[in-house]
Design a protein around this nucleic acid. Structure first.
Lengths: 103, 103
DNA sequence: TGTTCATTTGCAAATATTGCCAAATACGCA
DNA sequence: TGCGTATTTGGCAATATTTGCAAATGAACA
């Protein structure tokens, strides 16, 4: 059996941890439709912009998002659309009897 | 665009959060090969058995694992093998230039 | 019943996360 | 340069997570 190194386990955990917050998942949802500036993301989320900015930083730090400044604003983009396709598996887990939804 | 309800975002976040710890990912790895008793899992993890037990409870509480008592011991089983198949996407994220690894 | 082995739970300390406010930074433009 | 808009960062309090030790629970068996 393939034993993952502690480093790999840690790195994977960081990504999962980054996804482990409802606000950050909402951001991922929003960006699944295409890149958006911080102000637009902030508009759809009920939290201080500073809080939104930190959530974006968490997702960017693990590589899920990338950002690009264009003029006045910063645009964020989803780097890994496969995350939302993983939801099918998640709903399976959530429904309790979930194995059917998994590969 | 499909707007997820706060409840769904929260539920998904719980699952991701449960996966957001290296020890728990190690456990998932181990169980990908088939069910194991707590004592066997404990043997391969450098932590107090009480700690291992709590990690198992976290994973079970969100539906990723199920447990069954047989005689003296408790066996845990992975309910959602799709998690490990998601790693391909993760490694893509981790390698930084990852989009190719994603769907 | 009492003993032993396997697992879980109560507790407390250390550590990490979250979220707001206020201040700082970055950029475009007059 | 100075001003207004957009975004990030510092500081801090509240809350949550993690962990080991010790005690409790559950099951098998003498």
């Amino acid at each position: 059996m393939p034993v993952s190194t502690p480093q790999l386990l840690q790195a994977r955990a960081e990504v999962f941890k980054a996804l482990g917050h409802p606000t950050r998942l909402a951001i991922v949802d929003m960006l699944a439709g295409g890149e958006l500036c911080v102000c637009e993301i902030d508009r759809q989320i009920d939290a201080d912009m500073s809080t939104v900015s930190r959530h974006l930083a968490v997702l960017r730090n693990v590589g899920i998002l990338s950002s690009e400044r264009r003029g006045n604003q910063v645009f964020y983009r989803l780097e890994c659309p496969c995350i939302t396709s993983f939801y099918g598996c998640l709903e399976g887990v959530l429904s309790g009897t979930g194995r059917t939804a998994c590969l």
